[in-house]
């Protein structure tokens, strides 16, 4: 989370889009920015997992057997609210990326009776449904949320590959299709598709020591503090 905030600060200055894929060192529940920590009590399976609070909104995500991405795009000062264009571009890219692998994702349409779970305030993100979600066989397998800054927008997303023992009610793509897609296969396909669909050429880059230092400082002041996790 600290690295994503660091990257958003970089994009605010550089106005260069940034894309990051990552996994997690241990199974971790991330609460949405405005979620109450006390809501954790309603979800027994994730009680023993690590827990963080995101800077993006929406419901809780169990990061275990999934792919997390963050994409940060420059935005003109004065733009406000969610960027539905960005949601649509990213999701069109994800649909195109996974189609050749035999995974047919489709956006959620309100009123879709075949879609399981439709609670806008469910604790888990993957049990909520909006038109910005991607569905496979009635299950949500891609969830996302955005955070604006003055000059950019960050979109966090999660693509569920397999159910986790910490959230066994949420099947992933591999469970639903009896596949064995791996993290790296999906990253490669998504990266290729994001380049062609968005007309961008991504250049691989390591974090600089200054960026790591900034992330450490953000972590100390914000994301690693118990008061941040328990703020609601």
């Amino acid at each position: 989370m600290s690295l994503d905030q660091t990257l958003q600060e970089v994009v605010d200055r550089s106005q260069q889009p940034t894309l990051r894929f990552y996994g997690w060192q241990e199974p971790t529940l991330s609460l949405g920015y405005f979620q109450s920590n006390s809501e954790r009590g309603t979800h027994q399976a994730s009680q023993s997992s690590a827990c963080v609070r995101r800077a993006t909104g929406g419901g809780a995500i169990l990061h275990h057997r999934e792919l997390t991405y963050s994409i940060i795009m420059p935005q003109a000062i004065g733009r406000i609210g969610p960027s539905t264009e960005l949601y649509r571009e990213i999701h069109a890219s994800l649909i195109a990326a996974l189609l050749p692998l035999g995974v047919v994702l489709s956006p959620f349409h309100r009123g879709d009776q075949s879609c399981l779970g439709n609670h806008c305030d469910a604790f888990l993100c993957f049990q909520r449904r909006t038109s910005e979600d991607l569905i496979l066989n009635g299950y949500k397998v891609v969830g996302s949320a955005q955070r604006k800054s003055k000059a950019s927008i960050l979109q966090h997303g999660s693509l569920l590959l397999n159910a986790s023992q910490y959230a066994p009610e949420l099947p992933g793509i591999n469970d639903l299709l009896n596949y064995s897609l791996q993290f790296d296969d999906v990253v490669e396909a998504v990266l290729r598709s994001l380049s062609s669909c968005m007309g961008l050429t991504w250049r691989e880059k390591d974090f600089t020591s200054e960026e790591f230092e900034r992330a450490r400082s953000i972590g100390k002041a914000r994301f690693n503090r118990q008061s941040w996790l328990l703020r609601r």
Partner: peptide, 13 residues
């Protein structure tokens, strides 16, 4: 301050 609308958190300045 900050506001959350459906699908985005936005700061207020």
């Amino acid at each position: 301050g900050e506001v959350e609308s459906v699908k985005a958190v936005s700061p207020l300045y």
